[in-house]
Amino acid sequence: MALLEVENLSMAFGGLMALLNINMQVEEGDLIGIIGPNGAGKTTLFNLLTGMYRPLRGSIRFRGQDIVGLPPHKITRLGIARTFQNIRLFGDLTVWDNIRIAQHWHRNYGLGVALLRLPPFHRVEEEIARETQLLLEMFGLEPYKHEKARNLPYGEQRRLEIARALAARPRLLLLDEPAAGMNPQETRELMAFLKWLKEEFALTLLLIEHDMSLVMGLCQRIYVLDYGRLIAVGTPEEVQNDPQVIEAYLGQEVNDFAP
């Protein structure tokens, strides 16, 4: 059984078809890239997978369960977490709190326990603190733990957002342009980091990326979107040589030169 199965997924905004009949198969442990020009529908696809939009048609099955129509928090609890193209942290809260909050659904106690500070409160809070500390150390964010998230340097904000997503214990992690705004050196570091991440947390990764060196160097399989349609699927080599992909990126070949 595939981890994620998408069938004939379509989405429209008003009269605009943002996505049309998308089919995808993601196996456990895959590292998949989603590329395409601006406005191709990549982020819309993520928003559908995480339940932020409800599709017009089609089905999404995650670990065999149909997740269309489930609210985002339930989908997260099933094991899909994501990051955002324009980082969405809890800006005025500390790095520490950002990570603590993301453990909310799997490490918690009742409202009564909270209000009366009953014994489970201290036990669970200690567990939360331990995992938070562990994650911050793994992601090199320890030195920033008392800083407000909004005051972190850009690269650290990106890393914090990934760490926060992992604190929610996903099996499938969706990364929306993790390399945006990074220089080639940082992008190379990110590549190594993502490989490590995937192994360390036994994740399946789906990433939207514009940086071709990253996508081609990292992903096993690539989905190419253009104007809401899936125009190619394949290995990096296959996709690079696909005439439709070349056309989408470089424009149509002009054959009839006027002499």
Binding site: H73, A81, F84, I101
Partner: peptide, 13 residues
């Protein structure tokens, strides 16, 4: 802080 981010970490907003 961010309602959308809150739901994507599993909080029933």
């Amino acid at each position: 802080e961010d309602e959308i981010a809150a739901e994507t970490v599993g909080i029933n907003t």
